[in-house]
Amino acid sequence: MSPSPRIDLPMAEQPPPERADAARNRRRILDAAGRIVAERGPDALTMNAVAHATGMGVGTVYRRFGDVASLLFALLDEREQVFQAAFLSGPPPLGPGAPAADRLRAFLHALVDRVVEQHAMLLAAEIADPCVRYTSAPYRAMRIHTAMLIGRLRPDADATTVADFVLGPCGPSLLHHLRTDRGLTPTEIKRALDQTLELYGLDARLD
């Protein structure tokens, strides 16, 4: 098997270099937002609530993060970096060294686990701004990684667009519906994802 081509993935959002006071303010905002979510749930997270918890002006909080969706995604960044490290350089089959089909299946299974674990925050971020998910650095990284694996399996495919279709079932709102309204377990969802890969012809190595 030929080695996978090297690709540069956009990593989870990293703040640009900043002054020490700006970095402290960012950390204070994130810490306060994390406490609000942990104690009262994502629905309680507002810019006013964060401003009150930090003693900052609400305008400062808005200038730092823009909106609640961006703040929620910033809270998710640290875990996102751990997840990205696992599929970029961790042990196979999620990381390099396994056939593309095995890596794709392992990646989708791990993504289901991640969304289930963090469903409340991810769902709240998606509801706050449905487009943020698709334009965020973490999603772009997942799309590029998924497209790379699809390209190995189906060189004739529009890999980037197919990647969006393959990632679609792992969206927070759909997984919430499947688990809450349909009563499916994560194991049952993963089994259906395996069947989806089979239907797409992505369940066997062609390279």
Rank of each mutant, 00 (worst) to 15 (best):
F65V: 05
P169W: 02
D164H: 06
P10S: 13
A12L: 04
Q14G: 10
R6S: 02
D113G: 09
M142K: 14
R79K: 12
L202Q: 00
P96Y: 01
R191D: 14
P15Y: 03
L72W: 07
F107A: 01
F73N: 15
Y134P: 00
K190S: 09
L75I: 12
G168A: 13
L197A: 06
R105N: 06
H52P: 04
D43F: 05
P42T: 06
P10M: 06
R6F: 12
P10Q: 08
A32V: 00
P10R: 01
L167R: 05
C170M: 14
Q118R: 15
C131Q: 15
R40N: 03
D156Y: 13
R103T: 02
F165Q: 08
A20Y: 11
P16H: 06
H145G: 01
A49T: 11
E188D: 03
M121V: 12
F107Q: 10
G95I: 04
G59M: 04
I7A: 14
D67T: 13
G59T: 15
D102Q: 11
R182K: 15
L174S: 04
D203W: 03
T161G: 00
D207H: 14
P17K: 13
S4A: 14
I36V: 05
G66R: 03
A101F: 09
R140A: 15
K190L: 06
L71R: 03
G95Q: 02
G183I: 05
G95K: 05
D156F: 07
D77E: 13
L76I: 10
L111M: 13
L123P: 03
D158Y: 14
A33W: 04
Q84S: 09
Y134E: 14
S173Q: 14
P99C: 08
L122G: 03
R26M: 02
P99S: 11
H109K: 01
Y134V: 02
G201D: 05
V50T: 05
A53G: 03
A128C: 06
T54C: 04
E80G: 14
L122Q: 15
E13K: 05
V58P: 00
D203F: 08
V82N: 07
D77Q: 15
M1I: 12
P16N: 14
